[in-house]
Nucleic acid binder design. Structure first.
Lengths: 197, 197
DNA sequence: AATCAAAAATGACCACGGTCAATTACAAAA
DNA sequence: TTTTGTAATTGACCGTGGTCATTTTTGATT
């Protein structure tokens, strides 16, 4: 049985996250240096790694929080009426992840955790995303808006696959104009969700 | 106009690749250290980085070669007769990439390069993969085996998306049994290629 | 208050990828 | 052969993530 953490430890953890979030705000995710975080937080480097498994563990909390916020926004707008509207609902997610390769890489590293231990924020975020999508798809299915020959869970995971695909392509070109990830997603989802014969 | 490289340079490059391949053979991709490569090749570290942009650049050649070999195998077996057979054709690719996260990460980093400069082996591999898939899908379409309402290019890229999705999930669980990537792919492709209404 | 075991924090140290001004080897021109 | 410009290579050095034996802090117990 593990003891409850002391107050000092919680404060330190909070300070680390606070400082890290500030640095991300100023320099972006890719500008985050562990040394900068500990320096501004006034702790030793080892302390950070006793709070988070590694740099990714820290990032996972920051990014997981943001993903949760995005999901709040998605849920607030209610279920979409058709496939096109669903696609539009995903735009904020694409915008967020598309802003920095670091986010994409990290999410991908956790992306299959839909079933495992939900102790991490990111994992919880994924579960929530797939759950929400599944619910929406179920609604669209009963409304006859999309194909009904596949379980909504499969359709939901397929959507995640296309999200990552579009983002992967996005990060490969140097962002010189080119179709933004939002536009690129539409044809895939259209073909994926279209009623089957 | 850049001069042709001298013989010595070509030899050095060949030696680096040879040594790197040997180390991968012995320790796997994730066991590859730049220092080991240069030590065994008998050159200085800087030399390696004058031949390859970074460690990924070296890996890209090794992995690109292997991908090309896999594609040779795929092409040799000819076009599949139906969707299920197509899925089976992809198994070697899944097995290869699924063996080490390093391969997956690297391929993903280059995965969107379907259109850009094909100077890299990996990029060429991707183009070749999508081309081959497109050709096969076209055949299946005219044979009436799969949906005909979408261009074969889109279907091909969708398949790539599902390949990566399945692999991403695969790397998230600790490989303790669980459905191997090969099995996991089938339901997605079935749903993706099924004739539409 | 004094004692003590567990929790928390420390910072010197390491591993590894990557850089670049300086050096050496080469091949063409004089 | 000697000179000379450039291709090729060198290795000391750096940035950054991560480790761990040691030290400090904390709060319960006597």
């Amino acid at each position: 049985m593990t003891r409850a953490p002391q107050k000092r430890r919680l404060e330190t953890r909070a300070r680390l996250l606070e400082v890290a979030a500030a640095i991300v705000q100023e320099q972006g995710y890719s500008g985050l240096r562990v040394e900068d975080v500990v320096a501004r937080a006034g702790v030793a480097k080892g302390t950070l790694f006793s709070h988070f498994k590694d740099k990714d563990g820290l990032l996972a909390v920051l990014i997981g929080d943001e993903v949760m916020r995005l999901l709040d926004g998605m849920e607030a707008r209610g279920a979409p009426q058709d496939a096109a509207e669903l696609t539009a609902r995903l735009a904020p997610h694409l915008d967020y992840v598309g802003q920095d390769r670091v986010i994409f890489d990290l999410l991908l590293r956790y992306s299959g955790t839909t079933a495992a231990e939900p102790d991490e924020v990111v994992t919880a975020g994924f579960i929530r995303q797939v759950t929400l999508l599944t619910r929406w798809l179920q609604v669209l299915q009963t409304a006859g808006q999309i194909r009904q020959d596949q379980p909504p869970e499969l359709l939901a995971e397929g959507i995640q696959a296309f999200l990552n695909h579009v983002l992967g392509v996005w990060f490969c070109m140097e962002h010189d104009d080119e179709t933004p990830p939002g536009r690129a997603l539409a044809p895939y989802l259209q073909a994926w969700l279209q009623p089957a014969g």
